[in-house]
C-alpha cells in the first residue's frame, strides 16, 4: 500500500452512484442499510465529522499514532546525539570539574525536540496520506459538501442492482441521487 490514500481521488473510476443527504441521522441509517446489503461504500463526504460513520463503513483505524511515536523517538534520539556531540565529543567544557556526560539539564532541549519532531513528522505524513497539498485541485461533488450536505459515493460494478440501490437511498432520506461518470454528474 502506498503512502497516499488513492481512494481519495475520484479520477479514473468506474461509474459512481451519488446520494445527497442533509440530515446526519438519515445518513447514518442509510449507510447502515447499504452496508447491510453487502455493498461497499467508496466514500462519504461530510462538512463535519459524523461520528460512527467510519465504524459502519469499516474504515480501518489510522496508524498515525504509531507514526507519531516513531517521529517522537527520532526527535529524542537526534536531540540527544546533538547535545552529546556538542558537549561531550566536540568541545567538552569543564564546569567545576564535574564529569562530562549526560545530565538532567539536557532534558528540556531533548523534550522540546521530541515534541517538535512528533508534531511535524506526524503532520507531514497526515498531509501526504490524506492527499493534501497546497493548491491541489479538489474533487468536489457538490458545492455544499463543505457547508451542510453529506454525499455518499458508491462505485458500481457488474451485476449491481443500481436502480434498487437508488431506491434504497431515496427511501432512506436522500434529497438527491446522481450518477457520476468521467467527471460529469447527472441527476437520476
Amino acid at each position: 500500500m502506498g503512502l497516499v490514500d488513492k481512494k481519495l481521488s475520484l479520477r479514473n473510476r468506474n461509474k459512481m452512484l451519488v446520494g445527497v443527504w442533509e440530515d446526519e441521522d438519515a445518513l447514518l441509517s442509510a449507510t447502515q442499510a447499504v452496508v447491510d446489503k453487502g455493498i461497499h461504500i467508496h466514500d462519504i463526504f461530510t462538512p463535519y465529522p459524523v461520528h460512527g460513520l467510519e465504524r459502519i463503513m469499516g474504515v480501518k483505524r489510522s496508524r498515525l499514532a504509531r507514526v507519531a511515536f516513531l517521529c517522537g523517538l527520532t526527535g529524542l534520539s537526534l536531540m540527544f546525539l546533538m547535545v552529546w556531540y556538542m558537549y561531550v565529543k566536540d568541545w567538552p567544557v569543564n564546569v567545576g570539574n564535574k564529569p562530562v556526560r549526560f545530565s538532567p539539564s539536557w532534558i528540556p532541549v531533548m523534550f522540546e525536540g521530541t515534541i517538535l519532531c512528533t508534531a511535524y513528522g506526524m503532520g507531514i505524513i497526515f498531509f501526504l496520506r490524506n492527499r493534501m497539498l497546497h493548491g491541489i485541485k479538489n474533487d468536489l461533488l457538490d458545492d455544499r459538501q463543505t457547508d451542510d450536505r453529506m454525499i455518499m459515493t458508491i462505485e458500481t460494478c457488474e451485476g449491481m442492482d443500481e436502480q434498487g440501490l437508488i431506491n434504497l437511498m431515496k427511501e432512506k432520506g436522500a434529497v438527491e441521487t446522481r450518477e457520476f461518470h468521467n467527471g460529469i454528474q447527472t441527476v437520476i
Binding site: T118, I136, L140, Q145, T146
Partner: peptide, 27 residues
C-alpha cells in the same frame, strides 16, 4: 484553495484529522 490543500471532507480524512487533533492536543 491554496490553503485548503484540496480538503473535501472525506470520512477517511475526518477519521485521520480527528486522530491527529487528539495527538496534537496530547503533546
Amino acid at each position: 484553495n491554496f490553503f485548503s490543500m484540496g480538503w473535501t471532507g472525506s470520512t477517511r480524512s475526518w477519521a485521520r484529522y480527528e486522530l491527529v487533533s487528539l495527538i496534537l492536543a496530547g503533546i
